[in-house]
Simulated assay, not measured.
Amino acid sequence: MRVFVIVGAAATIVVAALGGCASAGHPSSGASSPAFQGPVPSFTGPWASEFEQAYRSTNSDAVHEILAKGSITDRDYAEVSAEYERCMANKGFPTRVTGPGGEAEIDGGEDSLKADEACNGDFAIIASLRGSILRNPQNLDENEIVVACLVANGVVPQSYTAKEYESNLESQTFPFSIDDAEFTRCARDPLGLSGD
């Protein structure tokens, strides 16, 4: 059995909305370690707050080194991805990172989830933040960009608002089918930046 994992905030939105999908949102698993108590770099740019939060969420020197630059390069992502894959393989669950924002395929079904939790600390922090930045570089309001996409693609009328969408997300009731391919695309890539 193969489990598909998506790490990140954007994934949480998609998974919350898509309910029965074969995906699982894994926020950073830094919960088992205490928050970082040392000095934090001064970050700038639209994602400064999130970089600071991610930096404080872990005591990992590897993650701190990456985040301290204020950006996450392809090489940084490749390094934490490879380490995550190695850790999972060592626990008996061959894993392949398949996407640019934390998407992965794990051989081993639900039994692999405990291993994933043990292995994904550094990977989850970097992948989550990187995926969010790739999806929304200027850190625009998530609900507004998803709704703009839904309106542009005829999923909802122009009168549909970000506030309505937020309410629909909370109640998990929508005025459209969550199986609609356009909704799925807008939830995953509202600005159309992935090229898909």
Rank of each mutant, 00 (worst) to 15 (best):
P41F: 12
L150Q: 10
N168R: 02
L134G: 08
W47Y: 15
D180P: 10
A62H: 02
S29M: 14
V146W: 00
E65S: 09
R185V: 08
E79G: 05
V15T: 11
R130V: 07
A11H: 00
E50P: 09
G20E: 06
F36S: 09
Q158F: 00
L67A: 09
E65C: 02
N59H: 14
P94F: 12
A16C: 03
G8P: 08
S132P: 00
P137M: 04
A62F: 04
R56K: 14
G19S: 14
T73S: 15
K69P: 04
A62P: 01
P27Y: 06
K69Q: 12
A54P: 10
A9W: 02
T95H: 08
D141L: 01
G92S: 11
S23G: 02
Y55S: 12
A162F: 11
M88E: 05
I13N: 10
C87T: 14
D179V: 01
P175C: 03
E83L: 11
V14K: 06
E164N: 08
S71H: 12
D141G: 05
V156H: 02
T184C: 00
N168H: 13
F183W: 09
A82Q: 12
G109F: 14
E182F: 04
G19E: 05
I72F: 05
A148M: 04
K69I: 06
E182D: 13
V3L: 15
V5D: 01
A16I: 03
P157M: 05
A22G: 06
A35N: 10
S159A: 13
E142R: 08
E52Y: 09
L150G: 07
P100M: 14
G19N: 10
G154E: 01
E110W: 04
G38W: 01
G25L: 05
V147F: 06
D74P: 04
F123C: 03
L150V: 15
E103Y: 07
G109Y: 06
V7A: 12
E65Q: 08
A181H: 05
S177R: 02
V151R: 15
Q138C: 02
F4M: 10
A127I: 10
A187K: 01
Q138A: 14
V14N: 06
D74T: 15
R86T: 14
L67P: 04
R135G: 01
M88L: 14
G8K: 01
A124W: 11
A115V: 05
N139I: 14
N143H: 04
P94Y: 08
A82H: 13
D122F: 03
F51M: 10
Q37T: 04
L18C: 09
P34N: 00
W47Q: 06
V97D: 11
P34W: 00
A10Q: 14
S28F: 13
I13F: 00
H26Q: 01
L193Y: 03
A9Y: 00
M88K: 10
Y84A: 05
R75V: 12
T173Q: 12
I145H: 12
V63P: 11
E105N: 09
E85A: 13
I106Q: 06
A9K: 05
F176M: 04
A187W: 00
S71P: 00
G92T: 13
N120R: 11
G30R: 13
F51Y: 15
L191M: 08
S32H: 03
A48L: 13
V156T: 05
F176R: 10
R188E: 02
D180E: 01
A11M: 08
S60I: 12
D189M: 06
L150N: 04
A82R: 15
E50S: 15
C119T: 07
C119Q: 10
E85K: 08
Q158L: 10
